[in-house]
Design a protein around this nucleic acid. Structure first.
Length: 416
DNA sequence: AATCCACAGGAACGGCGGGCTC
DNA sequence: GAGCCCGCCGTTCCTGTGGATT
């Protein structure tokens, strides 16, 4: 018998469950789409168009709505021969500054024309902006510039100052740039520098998280297409919707959950997808996300995590930061690694809190002991140790912690 | 109401690695 | 190769915070 055999298929067509799938109609976002349409209307009317900013958490339909609106806009603009209109789309997922966004824009524009890409470092910022203006000028007309996940640029917002003013500053003459900014962070606008805030005339559209009913309505047509008839138990889609609504209100999460459940069912050679598969899928996805988060930490981050794992193994949690720091320094000594300042360790801890790896408790005992934080792992100790064990440098330490954890587990059992 | 503890976390800065132009 | 530029990771210095205590 071979290693690979054809599995029983629950999927008829997995595409509707893919991240890149574009549904032909968008559900549960009528109000937002209407607002969006009004904001883009001036392009068809050849009137000056405001910049548009979409705010909402991941998976609330911002990107998909934008693709939808722009493709309609493109089609409808073709009806009028006096409209010169084009779009550029940049995902700022890994771009942490205006500089990098400008380079990504240049490369995207050149891609469309078959030109050479430019390197992501080396040029001065002004130089990159000049190149960008050149490319825009060459394009001409109204250019809709979509900056997806723009909140990644943080405080480095020069590009939001430069682009809208490129025309009045005389850098470009034949182009009308319209910025469509998509942000996962509601506070992004507040954190912009004052000069940008003042000059960035814009329309804002908010995309609230979906509730369970809306998620169900989004999932149903996709599920119909994705799976063979009769494969889905009746409660599967509602359960996916409920899980996702409870956690994030994200359609992406709900869809991934449904797909993962399908894949689990398929690899178990089951001919139906059950609630149980959904629960397993939920666990699986959560686990993956945490592992990825831990893997991406630096050596310093791992050392901090290791110190916390040590306290966790002794059941001496939550632990206040000064004790944790002390242990962290010992670990670094033992590893023959440099240790960093307390301030820096606080940053690492705050990062890990963002990733959902640890829990922070704020303590305040006033005059007696002041204000401080206490920390504990938010994930099973075993998961942390598994990652540390696979990191050569931490292998030995992880083994030691493992055995102290085992001992404490014994005595912990006898206590109850 | 004012004070005070013990940190939290913002701001500014610096050195290093890597890649650019000329 | 000199002279730039940027991002990343770290440091130092400092102001902010909020409940128990006075």
């Amino acid at each position: 018998m071979g290693m690979f055999q054809r599995e029983r298929q629950v999927f008829a067509n997995a595409e509707p469950l893919d991240d890149s799938y574009e549904p032909e109609d968008i559900r549960e976002r009528d109000k937002e789409l209407k607002k969006y349409q009004r904001a883009l209307q001036p392009i068809i009317d050849n009137r000056p168009t405001s910049n548009i900013f979409l705010y909402g958490k991941t998976g609330t339909g911002k990107t998909v709505a934008t693709k939808f609106m722009l493709s309609h806009l493109e089609n409808d603009a073709a009806e009028y021969d006096d409209i010169d209109f084009s779009t550029v789309w940049v995902r700022c997922e890994n771009l942490t500054s205006s500089y990098q966004v400008a380079i990504a824009l240049v490369n995207e524009l050149r891609e469309n024309q078959g030109g050479d890409r430019i390197s992501t470092t080396g040029y001065s910022q002004q130089r990159v902006f000049d190149i960008l203006y050149e490319e825009l000028n060459a394009l001409g007309g109204t250019v809709v510039i979509v900056l997806d996940e723009i909140d990644n640029i943080g405080h480095s917002d020069d590009i939001l100052y430069g682009l809208p003013r490129a025309r009045s500053n005389g850098y470009v003459d034949d182009v009308r740039p319209v910025i469509v900014g998509i942000s996962n962070d509601f506070q992004f606008r507040d954190n912009l520098s004052p000069k940008v805030k003042d000059t960035l005339a814009e329309k804002e559209i908010l995309f609230p998280p979906y509730d369970a009913n809306q998620l169900r309505s989004i999932l149903e047509p996709r599920a119909d297409k994705a799976f063979h008839d009769g494969v889905l138990n009746r409660d599967v889609v509602p359960l996916c919707a409920a899980f996702a609504a409870q956690d994030s209100g994200s359609a992406r999460q709900a869809i991934r959950l449904l797909r993962e459940a399908g894949e689990l069912a398929q690899s178990a050679d089951s001919n139906t997808i059950t609630e149980e598969h959904v629960r397993d899928a939920q666990d699986e996805l959560e686990k993956n996300q945490l592992y990825e988060g831990m893997q991406e930490l630096t050596t310093q981050g791992h050392a901090v995590l290791c110190a916390l794992a040590y306290y966790q193994s002794l059941n001496k949690v939550p632990v206040r930061s000064r004790d944790l720091y002390e242990q962290y320094v010992k670990i670094c000594d033992r590893l023959d690694a440099d240790s960093v300042s307390e301030r820096r360790v606080r940053d690492h801890l705050s990062d890990m809190n963002m990733l959902g790896l640890i829990t922070v408790y704020e303590q305040n005992e006033g005059l007696a002991a002041g204000r401080y934080h206490e920390y504990e792992l938010d994930i099973p100790l075993q998961a942390v140790l598994e990652v540390l064990l696979s990191t050569t440098r931490f292998e030995e330490l992880a083994n030691i912690i493992q055995s102290t954890a085992d001992n404490h587990h014994q005595s912990g059992i006898s206590r109850y």
